[in-house]
Design a protein around this nucleic acid. Structure first.
Lengths: 161, 161
DNA sequence: CATCATAGTTAGCCAAGGCTAAACTATTTG
DNA sequence: CAAATAGTTTAGCCTTGGCTAACTATGATG
């Protein structure tokens, strides 16, 4: 029991502190808040992007296709479609294909472009195709415009070597 | 009504399809599954990493500090601590500081290292400090070991120029 | 044109991760 | 050493995004 760290008393406010490499509290909190807020839009963007891709390559976006490509049940897709509809991103009629609203289309385009830049950047860096695809899918939503621009420039210079 | 896209009939199975740039269904689904599973561990890792940092720099990790740095209520932290405990990542006694288990320490170390590599890579690429911090926080959990290794090599070559 | 397989929807469940308000404990201070 | 203050926990609520099971609509086909 004597070496149980929990046994030690709470140090007083005036105890000396070791070197501080932590960011200031405010900034630290803002970083995590940014991640949380990215999370909220992430899934939405993935669905919208996929719907856009299906419309582009398959002429239609059916719930069943979305479900199998997302690796998720049809019920989940059905529920998500209702949400996308409430958000004004898609239009749907029961038992018919989905379509993107103007706003949804804009989101799909932006998302696809970001995805594309990140994917090509990773490949230009030398990452294998399979890994690049997986990483791009996850990273895509967390890359700022600033970083995106730099990635794009890097990819271009690599391609013209 | 006649130009309502929903009005069109479901195309037959044998209709011609435009050029197919979509990945095969199985692979596509696996990509999204990878992202979903990364999500599950992401928050856990962020908490554990932060606790590790607090222990390192402040000698103790109090719920209040975690709450203010995560930008979250104390109640949320309290609940999360219970979860981390159930997962065998931290030890805690009511109203006392937290400590990491061996497993938790390993996770904190791995997480910090990944974070460090991504952050330095972004800076080496030319991303500003503030942006690099935010992006690193989000990207960290979606970067595979393969990509991580490449990032590290890149950063080193840039530093020795 | 009746039937049936396929596709879509609904209801109801669960866990995670937020929140506020209220209760409780520990530490500091008058 | 009692009271005040600061820190922690608990209870209970909400939303999101999964799931299964049961039901309904569509469209292809014998």
């Amino acid at each position: 029991m004597s070496n149980d760290p929990h046994f030690s008393q709470r140090p007083s406010k005036t105890s000396l502190q070791s070197g501080d490499a932590l960011p200031p509290i405010e900034q630290h909190a803002r970083q995590y808040e940014a991640v949380r807020s990215a999370h909220e839009t992430e899934l939405i963007e993935d669905y919208v992007e996929l719907i856009g891709d299906l419309l582009l390559h398959r002429e239609e976006a059916r719930a069943a296709d979305i479900a199998s490509r997302m690796g998720v049940s049809q019920a989940t897709v059905s529920k998500m479609i209702r949400r996308l509809n409430e958000l004004g991103l898609v239009t749907n009629k029961p038992y018919r294909s989905l379509f993107l609203t103007q706003q949804g289309q804009a989101m799909a385009d932006a998302s696809r472009q970001r995805h594309h830049i990140v994917l090509h950047f990773l490949r230009a860096l030398g990452v294998s195709d399979t890994t690049a695809r997986i990483d791009a899918e996850g990273m895509e939503h967390h890359v700022s415009d600033e970083t995106l621009a730099i990635m794009q420039r890097y990819t271009e210079t690599q391609e013209n070597r």
